[in-house]
Design a protein around this nucleic acid. Structure first.
Lengths: 341, 341
DNA sequence: CTGAAAGCGCTTACAG
DNA sequence: CTGAAAGCGCTTACAG
């Protein structure tokens, strides 16, 4: 049998209350007593039972998730996962509060962060848009001892405890590698379609992609990026015009969430089927495009994994328990038609 | 506040013991009383707190993992993950017992299964080698109410509760797709290197690979498979001889765990660098081969994820709690140099 | 600075 | 067929 607080108390010759004080590093215990208790803990190999502790404490975790208002399929998928996680979390005394703010609006995000009642919330996860006000709001939270993780989109390091998402530089390089190899040493141009260059993830992916193409596939030339604002109509118009104008496009990298517009254009003319296409985010649309051979590969981050990871990381910070680093690493997943989940 | 057994007891006008009996579907309660309690549960929206229940029950989970004796890097990786999971599991009253049996030896596996004391073990995970004796041993366990999951390598459906591993048919098709696309519509032959065609995973990957190549890349022709027995020296000798003999090999699919021998041969002559190579399982060797450009892609299953998933699935069966299907799906991961974790 | 007692939400003998 | 009481491993007022 694993030792309990009773065993430790007996071994150290003190009461349960004192063991508890030492265990929780509460003040008001003589140094000598602390030493005796710690010696007993070491001797018995005592390890605290956290679920019993949480039961006694009636601990509930109030986790706040701040996400952009349902715009594109990926964010909708993230919301769906949050909804599912919410039900499951309840079984673990964990309440998920999901708040939506205007997309890409740093001030709206900052306001949401500033309005957090630090007495009510035990941890915060946010899809970040960085700004000075956001950084200040995050600083207030962290000074109040509230753990903060960023989800999918990051802020600079000292303003959060952890980033839950993929390395967008590596993702851009991966896309370059796939397009370069799939297009089979051909010469030609590569079209880039993004949401907006003001979004950090998109900008990072694009820069890394262009650099990798330049370094490794000298036969390919990147065209100026189209900014479709994650809007199907805008994307469609811009891309149709580009494909019509440029005659030797062999590859296309869809950086953001404009997949629907991209698919529309690519399926509009038979000759476009020769273009090697790599896109981001696995959705019903992109899956279908893979099956139809319109897309050649999709780079994905698993929204369900990200949500669960954010919850685990926040709770681990709150309880001061260890995490399994490997389990929390978000993979840059590559899907082709054949390994679809 | 979430309702507790006390609230249910009060609402139904019965004692805690009776609520507990209904909750746990124990017999010896009048149908009318059962109905009253269930009505109260519905009315209050009561949901049992499982960690409190486990505390009261002093429930410990004794999970037995049966794995092949440390042979190849993948299995060594699996063991490492099991070791790490073992430490973490202890915090959750879960004991992992890891037992090794002779590799690919169905009788050794069956003996291990037959020796299980069903009173001591609460769940079993095994890397399966199928045989009649193994199926019988599994039937005994399941009839004793012990949940069984297969890990990495499966048995037929009715003999286990769940399979934790990748779809090897899809994995073989994925390999074909990658080699076909990476080799750029060239014509030529593809070498296949496996451990043994007696191993079901290898046989499935190979068959699916050959079929997909035949269907989709008519310019490529699969050579007879080399069986390297997952041994570096054997693999090296066979492959060196093959590459020396056949002059127009453009692709190589390393199906099993013989990566070290494959890498040795491929790096032995400059001309071999042109060969498009897809291998299985991410290890230090295969990662280095990707970085060096010796391998073009590696197909992987995440051993850590598999171990954690097996634990979650077994505990969910034991406690009769739901699982998140998505979280338990093992992905066919594709790695190129740029998305290495 | 320290301890005795009650309680967290469940389950388990035991008694009736 | 049903209930009162004690206990699982912790924590928390309260008293001293």
């Amino acid at each position: 049998m694993r030792p309990t607080v009773h065993d430790v108390a007996g071994e150290a010759g003190v009461s349960l209350a004192t063991v508890d004080r030492v265990l929780n590093r509460r003040s008001g215990v003589r140094a000598e007593t602390v030493a005796r208790v710690n010696a007993a803990i070491m001797k018995l190999g005592y390890v605290r039972d956290i679920s019993a502790a949480n039961l006694a404490k009636q601990r509930v975790y109030n986790l706040l998730f701040i996400v952009p208002e349902g715009s594109n399929s990926f964010m909708l998928g993230l919301e769906k996962e949050l909804g599912q996680a919410k039900l499951h979390a309840l079984l673990d005394r964990t309440h998920l509060d999901i708040r939506k703010v205007k997309t890409f609006d740093a001030d709206a995000l900052a306001t949401a962060l500033e309005n957090i009642d630090v007495a009510q919330v035990s941890g915060v996860a946010l899809v970040a848009t960085e700004s000075q006000r956001v950084r200040q709001a995050l600083t207030r939270l962290r000074e109040a001892g509230i753990p903060v993780v960023t989800l999918v989109s990051d802020v600079s390091d000292p303003y959060r405890d952890h980033y839950v998402g993929i390395d967008n530089i590596a993702a851009g390089r991966t896309a370059a590698s796939l397009i370069g190899r799939f297009s089979g040493r051909r010469f030609g141009k590569v079209a880039l379609v993004a949401g907006s260059m003001l979004v950090k993830d998109h900008a990072e992916r694009r820069a890394a992609f262009e650099q990798a193409i330049g370094e490794e596939f000298p036969g390919l030339e990147c065209l100026p990026v189209l900014e479709g604002r994650d809007d199907a109509a805008v994307t469609r118009a811009l891309l149709a015009e580009l494909l019509d104008r440029e005659r030797d496009i062999v590859g296309l990298y869809s950086i953001g969430a404009g997949n629907r517009g991209v698919i529309d254009v690519l399926t509009s003319k038979a000759e476009y089927r020769e273009i090697t296409v790599v896109a981001h985010e696995l959705t019903e649309h992109s899956k279908q495009a893979l099956r139809d051979g319109v897309f050649d590969a999709v780079i994905n981050q698993d929204a369900g994994h990200e949500v669960r990871s954010a919850i685990r990381l926040l709770k681990a910070r709150i309880d001061d328990t260890p995490v399994i680093a490997n389990q929390e690493a978000i993979r840059i997943e590559i899907y082709v038609r054949d390994n679809l989940p």
